[in-house]
Simulated assay, not measured.
Amino acid sequence: MTASGPSAYLQVAEQIRGRIAAGEYPPGSQLPSLAELQAQYGYSHGVGQSAYRLLEQEGVVRAKQGRGYFVRAQEPRRVLVRRGTDTAAGLAAQGVEVGRRSQSTTEAAAPPIAERLGIEPGDPVMHTSYVHLVDEEPAYLVESWEPMAITGQDLVVLPEAGPHAGIGVVARMALLGITTGDPVERLTARVLTRAEAQALALLPGAPALAIRRTHYDRATGRPVETADLVLPGERWTAEYGERPTAD
């Protein structure tokens, strides 16, 4: 088949969908690369990308960064429990493989972020975006902001680089002589945006837990970090408090 015209990606998506339904590509198997699709159907890479993007939105295909496209397994995935506020530590305790991708940039604080951090709009902040992985798949997202007035003159300024990379907000602030304790969190329910769904390989409009987190300096009360966490509802449940143990 040679696909052309504005509906080309729909034709290709239908072909791939049919081959998956026929069992040619079982759940978890890798699908043809864009170059292989071009050789099979005779169209540009852009058409192949659009076809795969449509199948991703339908929940049929999953893209894995740097590896290609795979048939999404339809069996339900393990539900993860978020206990307390240290999500990463809680995941490790549940026996899953964890990892993350991150990117940090310096930017001017937008008014909502400035209000949360108790600084002026336009003041410099370090903004770090995270995609946290569980068993090599995206599990939740974090957007974090820290005032450069606090971290900017120290090696802790980059959360995921340098000698203190990856040790977490509480430990990094402790290196500056700041004791934070537990953050304040506000949890709400909403649906995933299109950008969030794409990052999590889910469908837009899927339910999510949205958590606004802020760490404070216990000595002064000033905010030292604020973050937005997004946890897809199909994978997560939240549990707070601790069961007492008998003496």
Rank of each mutant, 00 (worst) to 15 (best):
Met1Arg: 08
Ser4Ala: 14
Ala8Trp: 08
Gln11Gly: 15
Ala13Phe: 08
Ala13Trp: 07
Ala13Arg: 09
Ala13Thr: 06
Ala13Ser: 12
Glu14Ser: 06
Ile16Ser: 07
Ala21Gln: 10
Ala21Arg: 12
Gly23Arg: 05
Gly23Thr: 05
Tyr25Pro: 02
Gly28Ala: 03
Ser29Pro: 09
Gln30Asp: 01
Leu34Arg: 11
Glu36Ala: 15
Gln38Trp: 05
Gln40Glu: 14
Tyr41Ala: 11
Tyr43Thr: 14
Gly46Arg: 11
Arg53Cys: 04
Leu54Asn: 14
Gly59Tyr: 05
Val60Gly: 06
Val61Glu: 10
Val61Asn: 03
Arg62Thr: 15
Lys64Gly: 07
Lys64Asn: 10
Tyr69Glu: 13
Phe70Val: 00
Glu75Asn: 13
Glu75Leu: 12
Val79Glu: 12
Leu80Tyr: 01
Val81Glu: 06
Gly84Glu: 14
Ala88Arg: 06
Ala89Asn: 09
Leu91Ala: 09
Gly95Cys: 05
Val96Pro: 11
Glu97Phe: 09
Gly99Arg: 04
Arg100His: 13
Arg101Asp: 12
Ser102Leu: 05
Gln103Leu: 14
Gln103Tyr: 13
Ser104Val: 14
Thr105Gly: 11
Ala109Lys: 01
Ala110Ser: 13
Ala110Phe: 04
Ala110Tyr: 08
Pro111Trp: 12
Pro111Asp: 11
Arg116Val: 05
Leu117Thr: 06
Ile119Glu: 06
Ile119Gly: 06
Ile119Arg: 05
Ile119Gln: 04
Ile119Cys: 07
Pro121Met: 05
Val125Thr: 13
His127Gly: 08
Thr128Tyr: 04
Ser129Pro: 00
His132Ala: 04
Glu136Gly: 10
Glu136Thr: 13
Glu143Met: 00
Ser144Glu: 10
Glu146Asp: 07
Pro147Lys: 02
Pro147Cys: 03
Met148Ile: 14
Ile150Trp: 07
Thr151Glu: 11
Thr151Ser: 11
Gln153Arg: 15
Asp154Tyr: 15
Asp154Lys: 13
Pro159Met: 01
Pro159Ser: 02
Glu160His: 10
Ala161Asp: 02
Gly162Pro: 01
Ala165Asn: 06
Ala165Lys: 07
Gly166Ala: 02
Gly168Cys: 01
Val169Glu: 03
Ala171Ser: 15
Ala174Cys: 08
Leu175Gln: 01
Leu176Cys: 03
Thr179Cys: 00
Gly181Trp: 07
Gly181Glu: 03
Glu185Ser: 14
Leu187Tyr: 04
Val191Phe: 11
Arg194Trp: 10
Ala195Leu: 09
Glu196Leu: 05
Gln198Asn: 10
Leu200Trp: 03
Leu202Ile: 08
Gly205Gln: 04
Ala206Asn: 04
Arg213Cys: 00
His215Asp: 12
Tyr216Met: 02
Asp217Arg: 03
Asp217Phe: 02
Asp217Trp: 01
Arg218Phe: 09
Thr220Phe: 03
Thr220Ser: 15
Gly221Met: 04
Gly221Val: 03
Pro223Gln: 06
Pro223Asp: 04
Pro223Trp: 04
Val224Gln: 02
Glu225Lys: 10
Glu225Ser: 11
Asp228Met: 15
Ala238Asn: 10
Ala238Met: 14
Glu239Asp: 11
Glu239Pro: 01
Glu239Gln: 13
Arg243His: 10
Ala246Thr: 11
